[in-house]
């Protein structure tokens, strides 16, 4: 666990997202699945966008996907991130279900080696005792 002081902004869970972040803390990638029609959804919400059911359960997904798009931040106006430039942020499209995209950093990879469609898998970074952020590394 990283014991240095973590100075970056941390997610502020809300009633819809609390379970997602709790899952991350347990190193599980949880998304909602509608009990009415089976649709998976992320970001979390209180209603199914397909069948409008309000019944859902949290299910773990595999945490493998491909890079859908990415950026390399060379200048950040925010001090919390300016010391990290250049750093990579990507939209990752999960393999299962493909309809879900998550945002995160690409780690264990040189910025110039990142490419579209590159397979990645989740790694859980315990940035504080309370908060774990999912990030993404190339799948070997």
């Amino acid at each position: 666990m990283n014991t240095s002081i973590y100075e970056k902004p941390l997610p502020q869970p809300d009633p819809d997202s609390q379970m997602f972040w709790d899952g991350c803390k347990e190193h599980k990638l949880l998304v909602q699945q509608c009990k009415g029609c089976g649709t998976h959804r992320f970001p979390p919400d209180s209603m199914c966008y397909i069948c409008q059911s309000r019944d859902y359960e949290w299910v773990a997904v595999e945490g493998r996907g491909v890079i859908y798009s990415w950026i390399i931040v060379h200048y950040s106006p925010h001090r919390a991130f300016s010391r990290d430039v250049p750093y990579a942020v990507a939209y990752v499209e999960l393999n299962t279900p493909k309809t879900i995209r998550m945002c995160g950093n690409i780690v264990n990879c040189k910025n110039e080696d990142i490419s579209a469609g590159m397979p990645v898998e989740v790694v859980f970074d315990d940035v504080t005792p309370e908060v774990t952020l999912p990030r993404w590394k190339p799948t070997k």
Partner: peptide, 27 residues
Amino acid sequence: LNTTGIEQYCVPYGLTTFPQAVAMVAR
């Protein structure tokens, strides 16, 4: 920086500005 709403899912990773959001579109 804000980390509520939709921004809880991107700001912690350093996707913090509109230029960055639109760069994702450009890519």
